[in-house]
Amino acid sequence: MPDDRELRSTGSGQTLPTDTFPGQAAVDEMVVMRQEPAPETDEALARRPLGLLFWLALGWVGLVVLLAVIANLLPLPNPNLQNYAAINVGPSLHHLLGTDDLGRDLLSRIIYGARVSLVVGFGAVGIGMAIGGTLGLISGFRGGKLDIVLNAASFVILAFPAIVAVIAIVAFWGQTLAKITIIIGVATIPVLFRVVRASSLAYANRDFVVAARTLGATSTRIVFKEILPNVIPVAVAFGLIAVAGVIVLEGSLAFLGLSVALPTPSWGNIISEGTSNGNLSTNPYILMWPALAMFLLLLSINLIGDRLRQRFDVREGLL
């Protein structure tokens, strides 16, 4: 092709070699890049610290998880050991949080009870995310008939009052930890499906997905490399909020006597015991400790989820 770029005329009618000024664009840009690392103001905003509260919350969740995991290794009395010599004892060196009306150590019961809350909370959301999240990811990306069918199905399921269904199934099927986790997990599928689908759909039409396609990427590769990394932060943030919701649900079931069978402690059934047999007036600690533990755990999980969501929303806002 002919090239007339060797010499060109400037506006003022004099001639100059092209590359002294116009051809420098690329190089000059590099020079500027080296001078300043170009963090945009918005980026600085997205990177602002998560705050002390976030770390306190994370610390509390971490502590609860750690204690629940290593409960067997801790110098704690058996949570179901009834010591009639020490009934309704207040907090002391022997029993840091005191004992209940059957002389069981409350700290031990709460730590073992945390296992139930945590397993049900994270387990159920894990199940829900594995099924609902995966379906949502594919449904949002693929679209078409599959999406229409799954979307309609999720609406239908959401129209049932979940708690009533869960109560009925638990009563019918049994009260083991695994069964309760599965039942609640299934109940979370449609909600998690919808959240992940919406996020997946939002990215499926972005230009970078089209670009990947023209580069020859397969659908599987696009889902894993392009869509999933964008969906994960949203899923994690919302999943945490769902965990908190599930812990409350399990607590409610336990309170109604429909969670794991007694005497296995769970925060819900300890609270329930704290309100029965006149314990509320004789020994308010039975109610207070698990309620406080649950309150702090829920507050922390929600706060972590919310802060993560905020951080990702800011970055979303840039798009």
């Binding site: 972005r206 230009d207 970078f208 089209v210 670009a211 490399k225 392009e226 990394p229 964008n230 970055r315 840039l318 798009l319």
Partner: peptide
């Protein structure tokens, strides 16, 4: 593409 920001995956 037209939108330089939408053409690049923000997470990569």
């Amino acid at each position: 593409f037209q939108d330089p920001i939408s053409s690049l995956n923000p997470r990569r």
